[in-house]
Design a protein around this nucleic acid. Structure first.
Lengths: 204, 204
DNA sequence: CTATTTCAAGACCGATTGGTTCATATATCG
DNA sequence: CGATATATGAACCAATCGGTCTTGAAATAG
């Protein structure tokens, strides 16, 4: 093995802030205000960066937004990978997955909405970078749900006539609709009952 | 009967433009760009009004937006009232209703999105006037769907165990989710198949 | 006719937008 | 130490924002 290449440390003052943490703070702002309604001062306040530092680190508002969106997507997919882990009983996984949506779309949590849905509605079709991300996210989401449904079907847990791939598309629409309707802050009771009734139509 | 009160005509130059048509033009702009991304010049171009006339007629951007949103809601509810007319066979009505969503959420139509969903995501929770409208719209929509489902149930057309009121909530989430996913411009074939598979879970 | 009203066009307003630049302080290296 | 690199924060920029106001033409009523 070659000896370690000499990773010449930079000489000057070291980076004094956590870039990823700043992305996450920015994500929070975009999340609760949307892209257009977020002004530079909002981002500066949230990231606690100066204008100069922010532009040096991220380029511009749009680039920072894409970083934040990517972070949001990564978190969402990671959560799905845990909830729908293939070593888990698939119906339990689906229940856990939907329970997460109940959580995120009831009451005050619901008001916060979803950065992805908000971005899709605000920017999709007008921003190619966003288009790609939204499209591939929905694909990835659908694939994971379809996988869990396939496993459930193999275990004989699906209702008669349920086909995993089309059921996955239905489920994706349903949960994204939850995020929209969640903006009117329905109670947790109602949300949970709706999700339960939904799942009842698909599992045995 | 009293004789007609003397409707003193105004003296000056008569109104030279159709206010409702202007609202509809403005609605189109807000629809395809969203609230924040719509600038005054966009509205002036679309309505063919001068700044002065627009402000005289509508007050400000926000008021005009609310008028446009109300118009959008009125159109949507009118369409539902036709599609889900209680004199019609309820399952046919639901099919027609969902067919409309397939139409509006496939390909290029899908890209356009939905003014209501976009507004919900962009403004709900930060604009009380919008909140009221969004909330009451979803309520009205759910009530109409629940009505059709009740009639279907009475006619023995619903699958076993389907309860009209919770099924209505599910259906509202599903179609609003269609509007979100429609932003990625799925094909009409896929959308139609998804809707068909969805309905199959609920009707006999 | 005059009085009245509405129209378009554009000048104008202060505030804010996203973005750049620069001087200065500070921290870490060889 | 001196060289290097990064931070800050304010000054600055042109452009645009939503909104007001004025001007002058046009159209109707009495």
């Amino acid at each position: 093995m070659r000896h370690q290449s000499p990773v010449q440390l930079p000489r000057g003052r070291p980076r004094g802030f956590d870039v990823e943490a700043a992305v996450e703070r920015a994500m929070d702002v975009f999340w609760s205000r949307g892209y257009h309604a977020t002004a530079l001062p909002d981002l500066l306040r949230a990231t606690k960066l100066s204008r100069g530092s922010l532009y040096a680190a991220f380029g511009d508002k749009h680039s920072l937004f894409l970083r934040a969106l990517d972070r949001y997507i990564a978190i969402a997919l990671t959560r799905m990978d845990i909830e729908l882990d293939h070593r888990r009983e698939p119906v339990d996984g689906l229940r856990a997955y939907l329970a997460g949506y109940v959580d995120r779309n009831s009451g005050a949590n619901g008001r916060r909405g979803c950065l992805l849905v908000a971005t899709a509605m605000e920017l999709a079709g007008r921003d190619a970078d966003v288009d790609r991300r939204i499209g591939s996210f929905f694909k990835a989401m659908e694939a994971r749900v379809a996988g869990a449904l396939s496993r459930a079907k193999a275990a004989g847990k699906l209702a008669d006539g349920v086909e995993p791939s089309s059921a996955a598309r239905i489920l994706v629409c349903f949960v994204e609709g939850l995020r929209v309707v969640g903006k009117t802050a329905p109670t947790r009771i109602i949300s949970q009952a709706t999700v339960d009734a939904f799942l009842d139509r698909f599992i045995r």
